[in-house]
Write a protein that binds this DNA or RNA. Sequence first.
DNA 1: CTTCTTGCAAACCATTTGCATCATT
DNA 2: AATGATGCAAATGGTTTGCAAGAAG
Lengths: 148, 148
Amino acid sequence: MENAIRVFSGYLNSRGLKLTRERKAVLQQLFSHQGHLEAEELVHGLRRRKARASRATIYRTLDLLVQSGLVRKVDLGQGHSHYELALDRPHHEHMICLECGRVIEFSDKTIHRSLDELCKRERFKRTSHRFQVFGYCQGCVNRKAAVK
Amino acid sequence: MENAIRVFSGYLNSRGLKLTRERKAVLQQLFSHQGHLEAEELVHGLRRRKARASRATIYRTLDLLVQSGLVRKVDLGQGHSHYELALDRPHHEHMICLECGRVIEFSDKTIHRSLDELCKRERFKRTSHRFQVFGYCQGCVNRKAAVK
DNA sequence: CTTCTTGCAAACCATTTGCATCATT
DNA sequence: AATGATGCAAATGGTTTGCAAGAAG
């Protein structure tokens, strides 16, 4: 967390930008909520801890955080973006429960290897990838079975 | 194509819906453009062949086509949906060129196998998955090199 | 004729932007 | 003081919806 602020501050400095109260607050809020936050949750979270920041500022800050490499913007297929901390967290994929919204992270060497081979075969220079699996998590499957 | 219209018609009938001129036209347009269409391209395509249909109708029809299983809605990370024919086309993934927008389709048994194992391990009942690779296609890489 | 469809315009929702005001360096 | 940053409200872009008028079964 302290470390993250240092990194962010460094990034901002390197482009002549400023580390404001609002920017710090957004980063802190991301840390308090370890999961996959959406912009709207940040608005409310910040409001709750009286560190309000406008939606505009939040979006602008998220952009900076993504550019700095501290945060990843992820699309969980819900029509709006989610943001997750990237610091010290290797790239991973998401399984998304269509019932409860739970997100299970995973990462698989075999898949990555196959992917790299594929790119070589197709002469495609990949810069990133995104793998999402939609379905139902154990809990929701059980719950449904119980209802029947 | 004829076959697809039959399937669609059957689907509509089964729910007491009607096969209208507009709905037929949308399906035809999807066939004429074999790739990954976006809604806006349908609007213009239909307008060109004087088979105009309003945006509202196009979106409503696409919904029906997706529900009928004839069409897949895909998210290529461009902020709006694309639609591709699903009839007789196995599920596949997409590599998307960030420069020219080209989409390369692929499908890989090893990846699918690893994925199924992962789901079993996580006790996740998957219903679908989506795999996207972003990067640059050969042509764009070459073009860039030439410019330098 | 009844029910479903269409087109239009307005509504929506997430996100972005212009601009006057405010805060950091 | 100078340059950036903020908040607001308006704009955007894709998509959805309410409703009156029109067409398919």
